[in-house]
Nucleic acid binder design. Structure first.
Lengths: 125, 125
DNA sequence: CTACCTGCAAAAGGTTTGCATAGCC
DNA sequence: GGCTATGCAAACCTTTTGCAGGTAG
């Protein structure tokens, strides 16, 4: 992948943000220092990075995709009330995927698990 | 919920289609016999049914939502090549969700698991 | 009668894309 | 110099919504 200043700052921004930013979050964040950067470029590069496995793209029901600098196997829980995204460590799909391959002939290549509910804060209110 | 002819045929259509139809699939299917039905009505009612738990809404990354007449706990695998959706039976989240509640205070209310990969047919090609 | 429903069409929201220009190697 | 990336804006796709008229209870 060819170097560009934009790629550099977009990737850096994802790494810095701990809160699972959307493409638009990144765009807004970068606009401060780089008023000319375009939303199209942010989308293009985030998707490229995700394709290459450099970052992880989280697809969420009825909401913007989010991006995550953590690429090890993990999943997400999202609060239906405040929208906060938290990480979950889980690695319990091996057995299931083996069974699926044997029974259905389906070869799993990636997985998306999102748990929806209420986070601690919103439950307490 | 108040009766309407449209609700009746939309619900019937979901029950008849075994292939996890999108809202637009249902719309196209119903148009043959009911040229006046509107896409808005199809969306409105599918969402209402899903809210009431009468059908199940499957949210898929970068694609239209699909609807499923099976409402028991199950998940889906989707072929990246042909787009086919197959059912998976799985009920292994109880332990994980209990841990999450204890550790993070997050109360899971619903879950979305989608496995992406290659189905038998597409692997054979 | 009244509340809820429909069809229609327009709007919304998120994301992608075509094009001309600019930048890396 | 050639090829790829960018900025901009328009297009795109799916889904939602406002409105005026219709229908169930």
């Amino acid at each position: 992948m060819k170097y560009s200043k934009q790629k550099e700052i977009i990737l850096k921004a994802v790494m810095e943000q701990k809160c699972h930013p959307t493409a638009n979050d990144i765009y807004t964040y970068l606009r401060n220092e780089n008023p000319n950067i375009s939303l199209g470029t942010v989308y293009r590069n985030l998707n490229r990075f995700a394709e290459k496995g450099m970052i992880y793209k989280i697809c969420i029901a009825n909401a913007s995709d989010r991006f995550d600098s953590t690429i090890s196997e993990h999943y997400h829980m999202i609060c239906d009330k405040c929208g906060n995204v938290e990480d979950i460590e889980f690695s319990g799909f091996d057995k299931l995927e083996k069974e699926i391959l044997e029974k259905n002939g389906f070869e799993v290549q990636s997985r998306s698990l999102v748990l929806y509910g209420l986070c601690k804060n919103c439950r307490d209110i």
